[in-house]
Design a protein around this nucleic acid. Structure first.
Lengths: 184, 184
DNA sequence: GAACGATACGGAGACTGTCTCCGTTTAGCA
DNA sequence: TGCTAAACGGAGACAGTCTCCGTATCGTTC
């Protein structure tokens, strides 16, 4: 890629992250282009669709999910609390940008989605958590990582669109957690 | 209301139901107006926003939820199966129109929403189901009807946007159901 | 360091959807 | 049969998406 093209690409991603954080994922792409100081053509050449641009933006916080998952896996406490803690982390991270939760959850399991690599990172993280708990015999094994992401992502989507606070989300996550841990 | 106005209003609702079923809730309102044989002005006079139109459309299937709930309440089987059966009914009905699940779930608990009356019917139905089960001591009592609607609505939203079939939705609902029934 | 071809730029403008304004029409009453 | 309030409808202002193509720039080659 030519140096000027790379510069423009980077700049667009940076500005888009800012604009999307301010206005949500529905923000005007022409505005993003204008703020980035490039023409609409340049933006659309680099990012043929909104989804592709979103994908580029998501890269950074997908990395944060991996990090956060490491931290949660090291948690010493009850299995249910570990699961719940990961749920809360997950919801917090995917609702960082308005509309993000719906986007990522909707794409979950879709092999054709432009953001499938991000979904894979997330479901991979989920797999590590439920894998650990399954080893300990703490959670049911008939539900896979993608399904867990759909469940928690569903809650996250509702939390995002209804603007629920952590206190309102927690009981919902508790139900999901209780549904996953094996009956004692 | 003048007779011609009433006629037009009814016709718009009827056509909108059709168009939304075909194309989802994002369909062009001008198209609805055109198909209904009225001007855009007429449509917007009757329905100042898309939400208000959606509200009018939803009336009929909210009635169906009430009906379906009656049927489920008469179900003779295990408590968990009754709950699960109601979940499936709920998901089926609110995903009848593409985008409907997200709309209704997002508005759940919002006193200002134009479709709040519909949400109240749905959470009322949920209250009847979990009320019955709570009486029998079959479900936890720290989760209210709105929360149940949010949980199941979250699953429905994911099912809708990811176009999941009943077989893919069922395990998710099972987790939620298991999280709600009291531990044995 | 000049010339040149490939690559990238940018913004005008076509297209689509939302919503309003206002001149025209019509229902329904007296 | 007239009158008036109510309702109609569609042109058009506005906003967002996305494309096309003339222009500018990069970076390579000699």
């Amino acid at each position: 890629m030519r140096a000027d093209a790379q510069r423009n690409r980077d700049r667009i991603v940076e500005v888009a992250r800012e604009v999307f954080r301010e206005q949500g994922y529905d923000a005007s792409l022409d505005l993003v282009a204008k703020r980035a100081g490039v023409g609409a053509g340049t933006l659309y050449r680099h990012f043929p669709s909104r989804e592709v641009l979103v994908d580029a933006i998501m890269q950074s916080w997908v990395d944060r999910v991996t990090e956060a998952t490491d931290k949660v896996l090291a948690f010493e406490g009850s299995d249910r609390d570990l699961l719940l803690r990961w749920f809360e982390t997950y919801v917090e991270l995917i609702t960082l940008h308005k509309g993000g939760a719906a986007k990522i959850t909707c794409a979950m399991g879709d092999e054709e989605s432009p953001i499938r690599t991000k979904c894979q990172v997330l479901s991979g993280a989920a797999a590590r958590v439920i894998g650990l708990l399954a080893e300990r015999g703490a959670v049911r094994t008939d539900v896979d990582a993608v399904q867990v992401c759909r469940l928690v992502g569903g809650v996250a989507t509702v939390a995002d669109t209804s603007e629920l606070g952590p206190d309102q989300v927690r009981p919902l996550l508790e139900v999901v957690a209780d549904g996953l841990v094996v009956r004692g």
